[in-house]
Amino acid sequence: MNSLKRIMVGLDLSEMDDTLIRYTAFLCSISEIESVYFIHAEKSLDIPQEVLESMPTGMPADEKLRTSLIEKVEHYFGPDSRTQVEVLVVEGSPLKELLNLSKVNHIDLVVVGRKFHMRGSGLLAQKILRNGRVSVLFVPENEEPKLDHIVVSVDFSDYSLMALERMLTSALTKPNVRITCLHAYQVPSGYITLGMNYEDFDKRMQGFAHNKFAQVLERFPSLDGRATLHLVKQENEDDMGELLVVEAKRLKADLLVIGAKGLSAAALFVLGSVTEKMLRYNDDIPMIVYRKENEEIGFLDALLGND
């Protein structure tokens, strides 16, 4: 079953749009994505004339913007494209409009840009992840489409196994795509009380990880023979988010995948300490953050819902 049928791409009229449209077209060419919604949201469509000068005249501002975006999209999605494409320009809070449209259109994945040097802060992308119940793909600026090696961060929790399963059912993991399960482990300080030396307990932790990985292969038979387990040790002073990103870069990942814990009151700061730090340190690898479908957020909708 392909769980990646409908995706939404947030555009902001910057240079980032070309990167996002090109990368989305690449994803559609290697998968069975049925629908793509390219969406630009403006707080007000009372747009300065200088912004609209290069666009077609004789039509409302939203139609001018939409016509301009359609031309960009059609450059990458030709008439023979199997994917249904829709371009929308809406007025309102970008965050609220994107989250609402993702819910109404039953979006499986939101694609957003990850900016570093380009115009704009890129904060909207992280707000979508914090506030929404939808999975998000962050695409770095100037990213050239390629997908030969996927690295999945796996701590053997339900969330990481959910991310692995979603990745396997996304139709992006073609037979020629290598998959590496990246696991960061730590030797706990309490090993001394067990009468073991550091090296022996280190080996025990590695053995534990390999046993858990064997269970993963039993659960997902399609991984057998094509997925490998890669271990990296977290020293006391290491930042987990930075450690995972650095190792993924060293492995030359084309895509980094992680499962985010839910935004419950108890898990709010867990998300911030790992997932968001990975985003902070990751400047050149496309990264999918999978969320559990229909997971409740509760009162945090109101707490984090403003932009």
Rank of each mutant, 00 (worst) to 15 (best):
M1D: 13
N2I: 12
S3F: 15
R6I: 04
G10S: 03
Y23F: 09
A25G: 15
A25T: 13
L45Y: 00
D46P: 06
P60K: 00
K72Y: 08
E74N: 12
E74K: 15
Y76N: 03
D80N: 15
R82W: 14
Q84C: 15
V89N: 01
G92V: 01
L95Q: 05
L95R: 01
K103D: 15
V104Q: 07
H106A: 14
H106F: 11
I107Q: 08
V112R: 07
V112Y: 05
G113P: 04
R114L: 11
H117N: 14
R119Q: 15
R119M: 14
K127M: 13
R133D: 08
V136G: 10
L137E: 04
E144S: 14
E144F: 13
P145F: 07
K146F: 14
H149P: 02
V151I: 13
V154G: 13
S157R: 06
M162H: 09
E165K: 15
R166F: 10
L168W: 05
S170I: 06
T173C: 06
N176I: 07
R178H: 01
T180I: 05
H183S: 09
Y185W: 02
I192R: 06
N197A: 11
Y198A: 09
E199Q: 06
D200A: 12
F201E: 04
K203C: 06
Q206A: 02
A209K: 01
V216L: 10
R219L: 04
L223K: 01
D224T: 11
G225V: 11
R226A: 03
T228P: 09
L231Y: 10
V232P: 05
V232Y: 02
K233I: 10
N236Y: 09
G241M: 08
L244Q: 04
L244F: 08
V245I: 07
E247Y: 08
E247L: 09
K252N: 10
A253D: 00
A253G: 02
G262P: 13
A265I: 13
L271R: 04
V274L: 11
T275K: 01
K277D: 09
M278Y: 01
M278W: 01
R280G: 08
G298S: 03
L300Y: 02
A302W: 15
L303A: 11
G305V: 08
N306C: 12
N306D: 14
N306M: 11
D307W: 13
